[in-house]
Design a binder for these strands. Structure first.
Lengths: 337, 337
DNA sequence: CTGAAAGCGCTTACAG
DNA sequence: CTGAAAGCGCTTACAG
C-alpha cells in the first residue's frame, strides 16, 4: 500500500502539505496542489481510513443494529428494504455501514459497547420490540442515533403514519360494505402493533361500528405462523367476520393460508388487508390489498436525520412521520355486488 | 471513553502490561492479571478497535460486495439469506461486516480500492454477472476473498450443485409423465444460468428427450419480469410445453403470472418448477416446486473459507460445492392421473 | 515478569 | 504558503 509518506517523498513536499492538498485546504498554492494531486493519481494513493479515523476521532462509519424477534435477520423483508435506502443515502455522504452485534471477541457485551468499540459515528436501530433494555440503553446513549418504528423524544425517530393507514383500511372496507371487520393485532409491546390497533379502533368508531373484543386476535410478532393461528381462532367464532385486517403483510399471508385450508376463499368469503406492502404482497394469489410504507424514503430520511445529528450535535431530535397509501389489489371484495 | 492509559494509571502498571494481560499473554503473573482484569471490568474498558487495527494491520472486519443487476440490493432474497448465514459465522470469530461500494468520498474508485481504504481483512463477493471487469479485478487481487456462484481457481469459490439440481428437476418431471419440458434460462453471462441450462440439457438427454430450441427461452437476469416475458413467448408456440423449468424462483413466479393471465392454470395445464427455494416459494399459490439451495450453510461455509484464507495466506484456494434438494410442492402435476 | 520506546498512517495546531 | 512535531490508542520487539 502506498502511504502519504510515499507521496511526500515522490513530490518532495512534507506529509503536512500533502495532507492539506488532499483535503482541499485553501492555503496551498495551486502549483503545489497540482503537483501533489498528479502524483497521487499516478501512484494510486488514497488515505488509510483507519489512520484517519484514529486522528480525527471520526470513522465515517454508521452502525446498523438489527434486533428482531423472528430470527430472520437480513432476510426481514421490511427492514432490509429500509436499510437498502439508508445505505444508498449514507454512501452518498461517504459513510459505510457496519453491522453491530452484542459481542466483542467472544465476550458478550452490549450493542452500545460494540458501537464504541468500532468507533461508529452514529447508529440506526431497527427493531420490532422496544421493551428490550438493551435497546433503551441505545436510545438514551449520547451516541447519535436514529430509531425506526418507535416514538421517543430522546433521539431521532422515524415511522410511518400507522394510525392513518389503518383508518384508510377501514374506510376502504366500509366502502365495500363490510361491517364485521376483525383485526389481527401484533404483540402489545411493539410500537407499530399498538399504533395499528389504535387506528383500527379509531376507524371503526368513525363509522359507528361496534368493536367486538372477539374480533381482535393476537398475531404475535408479525410472523406468518402468528397470522395463521390468529385466523384459525377467528374462523372458530360463531359469527365469522367478513373482512380481516392484519397488522402486517406476513401475518395477512398466514391468514390467507388458514382461510384456504378451511375451504373458504379470499376474497369471495373473507376479504383480507395487510400492512407494509412487502415485495411478496403483489405476487401472491390473490394479490394482497395493503397499506404501502415508503421503505426507501424511510431509509433515506433516516440517513439524513442521523447525519445531521452527527454534524451538529446540538441539534434537537426530530420525529419524522411518513405518509402511507392504500394499495387496492385482489384480496378485498365488495359485499354489495 | 476509557483508554488503556486510564487502566494503567488506575492499576499502577504500564500500558504494556495492561495490553499483555488483556491479550492473554502467558508471561504475566496471575496476580497482576487479576488486578488488571478486575480494573478493566470495573472501569468498563474495552480496546478501541481502530487503534488496534492501525497497529496490527488487521481490522477484524470483512467486506461485503454486492453486485447485482436488478438494483434490489439487500432486498435480494437469495443473496440476503446467504449474507445472513455469513454474518452469523463471521461474528463468532470476532469479525464485523462492512458494506463496500465503489466510492471513496465523492470520487468513483474501484471496489478493491475501497476495500483497501477500509482495511478489511477479506471480502465476500456476491454477484450474478461475473463479466464485470471490476469483479474480475476483485477475484484476482491478493486480498483474501470468497466468491459466490462462480467458478474460478484464483480464489475461494462456493456454489450449489446447479447441474445436479437440474437433473433432479427433469427426473421429477419425467416421472410425472412430462416430455414436453421447456426451460426459462437466465442470461448467458451468469454462471448459474449456464450451469442450469447445462443441467437441463443433461437431464433431457438422460431420458432421450429431444431438446427443442424453441423450448429454451431467455429470462434475463433472474427477474420476475424476465420470467413473465419468457413464459409469454412459450405460450405463443404452436406446441405449448406441459412443463416449464425456470432457472430461478423469481422467474418461475413471473411465469405463473403469465400463465394465469392467459387463462390457464398451474399445475393443471402447465407444471412449473423453480430453483432456489426463496422464502416466497412456499407462500405463493400454488406453492412452488423448486430446488432448495442451502443458503445458510452457503453463508457459513463461505465465512469459514474466507477466515481460513486470512489466517493462513499460503493455503490453497478451495472450491466448495453444496448439495441441493428437490422440494415437491403444488406447482407440478402428473400427466398420467 | 515488567516497562520504555517505537511505530502504525494520518491530521492539525503551532511556528515561521 | 510550507514544515516539524505532537498525538490519536493501541501492540510488539527489545531490554532488563
Amino acid at each position: 500500500m502506498v502511504t502519504i509518506y510515499d507521496v511526500a517523498k515522490e513530490t518532495g513536499y512534507s506529509i503536512t502539505t500533502v495532507s492539506r492538498a488532499l483535503n482541499n485546504y485553501p492555503d496551498v498554492s495551486d502549483k503545489t496542489k497540482k503537483i501533489i494531486l498528479e502524483a497521487v493519481d499516478e501512484m494510486g494513493y488514497f488515505p488509510n481510513s483507519i489512520a484517519r479515523s484514529l486522528t480525527m476521532k471520526k470513522s465515517f462509519t454508521l452502525g446498523v443494529i438489527f434486533v428482531e424477534d423472528l430470527g430472520v435477520g437480513m432476510k426481514h423483508p421490511f427492514f432490509s428494504a429500509v436499510i437498502e435506502g439508508f445505505k444508498q443515502r449514507a454512501e452518498k455522504f461517504g459513510y459505510d455501514l457496519v453491522f453491530i452485534n452484542r459481542f466483542i471477541g467472544n465476550e458478550k457485551k452490549s450493542y452500545i459497547d460494540h458501537a464504541y468499540y468500532r468507533g461508529v459515528d452514529g447508529i440506526i436501530v431497527v427493531c420490532s420490540n422496544y421493551s428490550d433494555p438493551e435497546v433503551v440503553k441505545l436510545i438514551e446513549s449520547p451516541l447519535p442515533s436514529v430509531v425506526l418504528d418507535v416514538h421517543s423524544d430522546k433521539t431521532n425517530v422515524i415511522y410511518s403514519n400507522n394510525v392513518y393507514g389503518c383508518e384508510l383500511v377501514i374506510d376502504h372496507l366500509y366502502s365495500l360494505g363490510h361491517k364485521k371487520i376483525a383485526h389481527i393485532a401484533a404483540a402489545e409491546d411493539t410500537f407499530t402493533g399498538n399504533e395499528r390497533l389504535k387506528g383500527y379502533k379509531l376507524g371503526m368508531d368513525k363509522y359507528g361500528l361496534p368493536i367486538n373484543e372477539d374480533y381482535i386476535v393476537d398475531g404475535g410478532y408479525f410472523s406468518y405462523e402468528g397470522g395463521y393461528h390468529a385466523m384459525n381462532n377467528l374462523l372458530k367464532l360463531d359469527d365469522v367476520p367478513t373482512a380481516v385486517f392484519a397488522s402486517g403483510d406476513t401475518m395477512a399471508i398466514g391468514a390467507i393460508k388458514a382461510i384456504k385450508e378451511a375451504g373458504l376463499k379470499v376474497p369471495d368469503d373473507i376479504s383480507i388487508v395487510g400492512f407494509d406492502d412487502i415485495d411478496l404482497a403483489q405476487h401472491i394469489t390473490p394479490a394482497l390489498t395493503t397499506i404501502r410504507q415508503n421503505t426507501e424514503l424511510m431509509g433515506k430520511r433516516a440517513a439524513d436525520l442521523l447525519i445531521d445529528q452527527i454534524n451538529d450535535k446540538d441539534e434537537d431530535f426530530s420525529t419524522v412521520i411518513l405518509s402511507v397509501d392504500l394499495i387496492d389489489r385482489e384480496s378485498t371484495k365488495s359485499l354489495t355486488d
